[in-house]
Amino acid sequence: MNNILETKNLKKIYHTEKQETLAVEDFSFNINEGEFVAIVGPSGCGKSTILSILCGLESKSDGEIKLNKNTKIGYMLQQDSLFEWRNILSNCLLGLEINKSLNQKTKKKVIDLLNTYGLKDFIYSYPDNLSGGMRQRVALIRTLATNPNLLLLDEPFSALDYQSRLAISDDIYNILRKEKKTMIMVTHDIAEAISMCDKVIVLTSRPAKIKSIYNIELENKSTPVNNRKDKKFSYYYDSIWKDIDYHV
């Protein structure tokens, strides 16, 4: 398998006039092509910071990031951030417009994605008319439009209610597997991490360091909703739960 991203001793310090805060320290990991990796940890530990650094939104303070030269990153945020004044299709074309690669062919591909993933009747609707789960699917297609092979998902379902969450995590899992993408997902939901990913990285509370890494080997690997019923699911759930230092 191809190693598409590797980090070594990544470090991030936030500066304000009054103090400096060490957010991430000694973060080293690698991800292979086609792998789904989850990063879990207590809230506020710096999980999202890691994603922001990987996709270049924030600068790292120290350490190394090695990207395979063919790696193209797509970032999906917690909020769908759809533009209310653009219809669904036009929202999905945003990335292509920005990197100036919008043409008949790329547009057709986006329309195909919308058709395939259940948004056929909403292509010319405006975001206001869509449910939370559908909007999240649109946000994923907007991310996929520029054809990235590594997707960074930052708590992608946390704005949704529990039912939609389960349904959409199945959806997105299937879409990403089908399109043969690699994924790194940040979440605070242990069950979501185990059911969707091949590998789970547990972080300590701030400053975030790697506490443990689990390779998820279920007996019958299936879709996220089914994976939750797997015999080994609760074993992983318990171990990860114990690893995360929750302070209530």
Binding site: L57, L77, S81, F83, L94, G95, I98, T146
Partner: peptide, 20 residues
């Protein structure tokens, strides 16, 4: 978050202004 989205798509400052 919308600005963050534009930045994650590598938008320039003028693209951020005119598109968002």
């Amino acid at each position: 978050n919308k600005i963050k989205l534009m930045k994650s798509l590598n938008a320039t400052k003028s693209q951020i202004f005119f598109k968002l």
